[in-house]
Amino acid sequence: MPPGQPPKISLRDILAKVDNLPSIPEAALRLSRMMEDPNVNAEKLANVIRVDATMTSHVLRLCNSAAYGFSRRIQTVKEAVAILGMNTLRSIVYIIISKFALDRSVPGYGLSRGSLWLNAITCAVYAKHLAEQRRLIDPELAFTGALLRDIGKIILGEYVGPNYANIEALTSQKKIDFVAAEEEVLGINHVMVGMKVAEHWNLPESLVKVIRYHHSPSQLKKEAILDKKLPPLVAYVHLADAFSMMVGSGVGSDGMMYSLDLEALKEIQVVPDQLYLDLTLAKLIDLQHIIDSFTESMNNIEVS
């Protein structure tokens, strides 16, 4: 190894850290897996939620938040599952998972506690709004896809912090984005680490792919078997990620050191010219009240 170069990180190092990850309520992970089964029925899901007091309270609080705007108060899990529908219930389960996973400080990326989760919720609200414009996929899919995209940062932050100056310098020297510079300096990057975490939690394949490709969605083509919904899903998350960087909501020290993947945006019929970006950004900013209602619903939840 040349002098002055930081050690490359092995997958074994990362896997060891995966075992020390924050604990996610088992019922939430179980629900996330059950919801991948197209034959699962609402009653089975309600039963899993009902026997877990923590999940029951989180689900009811979230579905009664102003973000969903139901005119009357939802009082039971059975009612919640019936009214929300499968895709919105999935979003709620992932909001809970992401809160437990991301609500911590990550000093290596300059993130104080709450920032990473705020950024996740912001990106999710934006991705849903963008997907609602053309309905190429269910907007709730875009919402859940965005929530855990940066989960790798909670592990990689430990390595990024001491090497930040090298990583940042490389972005301008080689004209590469922050995630590519992480890989050059550390031998691994936050999307690769994120994939490992998602696999450890047995998260659905679609979420693993969103995490892996959210900075480079056109690279999805490399995948041999591809679900048709994946390219638009990853493209929406990628675009929402760019808008959340522009707004600055919970953004860390990697800042805006990323680039738009124009090729992938064709997938969702978006030409990101100045007028499109300004108009969309203007609409997204006016969604702040939805982001606030999600954070208010979850802000008294204690995570370890």
């Binding site: 972005t171 004209k175 984005d177 760019a242 960087m245 522009m246 805006m256 050191m257 990323y258 680039s259 738009l260 993947d261 124009l262 990101p272 010219d273 100045q274 499109y276 970006l277 300004d278 950004l281």
Partner: peptide, 13 residues
Amino acid sequence: MFNFGGGANSLNT
């Protein structure tokens, strides 16, 4: 953001 995609830089808000 960086503009690695080339062309007019519409990301220059």
